[in-house]
Computed example of a mutant assay.
Amino acid sequence: MSIQDLLEEANPRPPLTGFDADLEAAMNREMETIDVEVVFGKSIALMTLTEINGGEWSHIACWLPRPGNTQDAKLGCNTDEVLARYPVDRIVINGEHPTPDQWEQVLKVMTAADREDVVAALWWIHVGAPEEEKAALIALSERKKRRG
Rank of each mutant, 00 (worst) to 15 (best):
C62R: 10
T111Y: 04
L75T: 05
P130C: 06
K74N: 15
G68A: 03
W57L: 03
R85Q: 03
W123I: 00
E116R: 11
I52G: 01
D117C: 13
E133H: 08
E131P: 11
K108C: 12
A45G: 12
N78F: 07
A73G: 08
V118N: 02
E131V: 10
D89T: 12
V109Y: 03
D80M: 11
V119H: 10
C77T: 14
Q71T: 13
V82H: 00
R90L: 13
T50Q: 07
T48W: 05
R66N: 11
L49T: 08
A129Y: 07
P130A: 04
H126K: 07
C62G: 12
L64T: 13
L64I: 09
T111R: 02
G95C: 03
R66P: 06
Y86A: 10
Q105G: 09
Q71C: 12
E51N: 03
M47D: 08
V118A: 14
I125D: 02
H59C: 08
P130H: 02
A129S: 13
H126M: 11
T48K: 14
E131W: 00
W123C: 04
V82D: 03
G76Y: 02
T50R: 07
G55D: 13
L107G: 06
H126C: 14
L122C: 00
A45E: 10
P130E: 07
T50F: 05
D80I: 13
E96M: 02
R115S: 14
R85D: 12
A45R: 11
A61Q: 04
I60E: 00
D89L: 13
V119N: 07
L64R: 10
D89N: 12
E133F: 05
P98R: 02
E81A: 15
Q102N: 07
N69K: 15
L83Y: 04
N69A: 06
P65N: 07
M47T: 11
R90N: 06
H59A: 05
P87F: 00
G68Q: 15
